[in-house]
Design a protein around this nucleic acid. Sequence first.
DNA 1: GATGAATGAGCGTTCATTCAT
DNA 2: AATGAATGAACGCTCATTCAT
Lengths: 208, 208, 208, 208
Amino acid sequence: MPTRSDTDLRTAVLDATRQLLVREGYRDLSMRDVASVVGCSVSSIYLYFSGKDALIHTLMAEGFERWHAMVEEIAAREATAAERLEALCRAYIAFGLENAEYYEIMYMFHPDRMARYPKELYRRVRRTMDLTAELVLAYAPEAVQTSADARIAWTALWATLHGVVSTLLTDRLDHRIDRSRYIEGSIQFTLNGIRAFQPATLPGEVAR
Amino acid sequence: MPTRSDTDLRTAVLDATRQLLVREGYRDLSMRDVASVVGCSVSSIYLYFSGKDALIHTLMAEGFERWHAMVEEIAAREATAAERLEALCRAYIAFGLENAEYYEIMYMFHPDRMARYPKELYRRVRRTMDLTAELVLAYAPEAVQTSADARIAWTALWATLHGVVSTLLTDRLDHRIDRSRYIEGSIQFTLNGIRAFQPATLPGEVAR
Amino acid sequence: MPTRSDTDLRTAVLDATRQLLVREGYRDLSMRDVASVVGCSVSSIYLYFSGKDALIHTLMAEGFERWHAMVEEIAAREATAAERLEALCRAYIAFGLENAEYYEIMYMFHPDRMARYPKELYRRVRRTMDLTAELVLAYAPEAVQTSADARIAWTALWATLHGVVSTLLTDRLDHRIDRSRYIEGSIQFTLNGIRAFQPATLPGEVAR
Amino acid sequence: MPTRSDTDLRTAVLDATRQLLVREGYRDLSMRDVASVVGCSVSSIYLYFSGKDALIHTLMAEGFERWHAMVEEIAAREATAAERLEALCRAYIAFGLENAEYYEIMYMFHPDRMARYPKELYRRVRRTMDLTAELVLAYAPEAVQTSADARIAWTALWATLHGVVSTLLTDRLDHRIDRSRYIEGSIQFTLNGIRAFQPATLPGEVAR
DNA sequence: GATGAATGAGCGTTCATTCAT
DNA sequence: AATGAATGAACGCTCATTCAT
C-alpha cells in the first residue's frame, strides 16, 4: 500500500519545508519537524538532501526561479513600459509578502553563513536582474541611458522594494500609516526617482 | 597584571556580543561564545544580564539610543533643510554599515519572537521617527504638507535606506556597481521622489 | 559482540533508573547518571522517554502495578481472612524493603511537585485500596462493619506499615531492636488494633 | 544604621531557611534564596555555616531539640499514664504537621546521603526515645514488661505516628476519610495494640 | 528506497562555593 | 564582619547527522 506512490518523497520534503518555513521561520525549522509533517523518517530526508543547508539552498533556488518566471511574464506583456515597470514593482512586493519567511531565506540571509552556495544561482540572479534592467531602461530612456545606469537604477529601485517588503514583514510600519497607501506611495515616488535619475556624482565631484 | 581591572565585565560582555553578532548573526550567538570571547566563565555573564534576551535587549536599546543621538545632532545643525536631510540619509546608511548586524538585531527582528520588549523602546523609536518627519517636512514643504504626509514620506524614504543597507550588508549588490555611486544614487533619487511626492492614490482611485 | 542486543535500551534505562533511585534518591538522579550507568548517550534516553518526569512516572506506574498484582494474588488465596490479612501486611513491608526508593517515589512523593500524573493511576490506586478494604472487612467483621469503616481501618493500618517500611529504609530503627521482631510486633499489634476497632470519636464527642 | 543590630545574622539565616524549607521544600532551597530572604549576601552565610549541609544539619538538630522539649514537658505533666501517652501521640502528629517539610528533613532523609551527621545527635535522639519508652511502659505495665519491650512497642507506635504524618503531609489520605477521625482512630487503635502487646514471635516460632 | 537506533556537540540556565578586598 | 565578583560543574534538553539493516 503505497502511501505516497505518485508524488515522490523529495517533493514532499520540499513542500513541508516551505510550509514550515512560513509557519515557524528559518531558525525554528528542524529536520524533525519536516519529517513529521511529511510523515517520513528523519533519515529519509538525507536520501535526497545532503543536509539542512542543501535543503534550504534548494528552496532558495526555487524561490529565485519563481521570481524569475514572474519577471519574464511581465516583460513579455503587451503594455507600455510604464505599466510593465509598475507591475514589476507590485509583483515584487506581492511576492515578498505572500512568501513571507520564504522570502526571508531568499534575501535576508548572509550567503557566507551557509556552506557556499552554487555559483549557478548567482548567474541566474544576475540574469534576472539584467532582464529587469531592460524594463527600467525602457521606462525612462531619456534619464537612464546606458545599461550600467539601468543596473544602478534597478538596484536602487529594488532596494526600495525590498525595504517595503521587509518593513511590512517585520511589522515595522507605523500603525498610523495605511498599508496600501504606503505601498503605492513608495512605488510611485521611487519611479519618480527613476525618471529624474541622473548618474550619481560622488560627494566632491561636481554636484548635480 | 590586571587584564581587565579598569573596564568592567559588563562592558566587556556587551562588546563581545556586539562583535559576535556581526560575525555570527543573532541566532548563532551563544552565551558560551560570548564568554569565550570575553575570556570569562559563562555564568559570569549572568551576573550582569538575566539571560540571553536581556543581553540582546540591552544592545538593541543601545543601538536605538545611538541612532537617536545622531538624528538629534543632525536636526540641530546650522544648514539648509536639503543639507540636513541628505546628511540624515547618509548617516543612516553609514550607521547601518558600521554597526553591521548590530543593525540586524535592531531592524530585522520580529519583536514578537522575543520576550516582549519594554514599551519604552517603542516610544523612543516613534519619537525618533517624528523628529525625522520634521526634517522631511522642512525639506519639501510644498510637496509634503501635513505631518501625516511627512510620516508616510519618511517611512518610504526609510524603506529605501533600509533596503540599501540591507543590500550592502548581505552583499547582494551586483559587483559591477560601484558601491559609493550606488549609495549616492539611491539617496538622490529617493529625495527626488520626496520632492515629487503626492499623497498616494490607491489603484482604482483617480490615478496620478 | 552485542552488549545489549537482546534486551532493549528502554528496559536498560528503566533498570538503571530504578537502581540509581535506590542509590541516590530521586532528586539526585540525573539523566546523565542514568545514561552513564546504562552505557548509552544521554540523548538516547529521550528516544524512549519524553523527559525525566515521564521516566519517573513510568516507574511509579510500574510499581503500583506490581503492588496491585500482589494484592490480587493474596486476595485470591485459599486461606482464612486472618491469614490473608497478615500475608498482606508482610507482603507490603517486604515490597517496600525490596523495592527501596522505588518505594520512595511511589509513596513519599508529593504529586503536586511533578507534572500532574495521569488520573488513571489514581483510579488504580483507589481500586487497590478498595480491594484491600475488603480483606480488612473480612478479617474483623464484628468490629469493622461498614466499608467506610474498613477504609478508615485500612488507611490507618497502612499508615503503620508505611511507617515500618520508612523506618527501616531510613535506618532509623534503634539498633538494639531486632528487625524481624519489630516487623512482626508491628503487624500483630496493628491487627490487634483492627480487631478492637471502633469508629473513632473526635475529642469533644462522647468518648469511647 | 544597623539594619539587624540586635539579632545576629546566624539567627536570621536559620529563620529564613526554616521558612523557605516549609515554602519550597528541601530540594528547591537554595543559598541564593536564603540570602535574599535574609537580605544579606550569599557569601555571608558561609561565615556561620560551612555549607548548605551544615545549615540543614543545624536545623535538623534544632528540630530534634524542639521535639525533645515537648516530650519532656509531657512526661512531666500531672496526669495519668494514659493521658500522657495519648498527649504524646497527638503532640507528635501536630508537630509533624505544623513543621511540614521541616519534618521532612528531620525524618525522611537518609543520613547517609549527607556528610556524616555528628554522633551527638544520635545520642540525643536515643535519649528522647528512652524517655518515650518510659511513658509507654507506664501506660501498659502488664503488657509491656521490660524496657526492651517498651522500646519495641514505642518504635512500633512511632512508626504508626510517622505513617500518619507522612500520609497527611503527602496528601495521600483517601479524601473520603475525615482527617480528624483518621488521626484519632490511628492513635486509639495503636494504643489498643500496645495494651494487647505481647512480645512478638517470629514466624516459625510458637505463635501467639 | 527507507528506516530506527544511536550519538556527540551544543544549548540556556542554575547553583554551591571560593576568595580578594 | 561582610561582600561582590567570579567560577566550574552540573542540569534537562534539542538537534543535525550517521549507519547498519
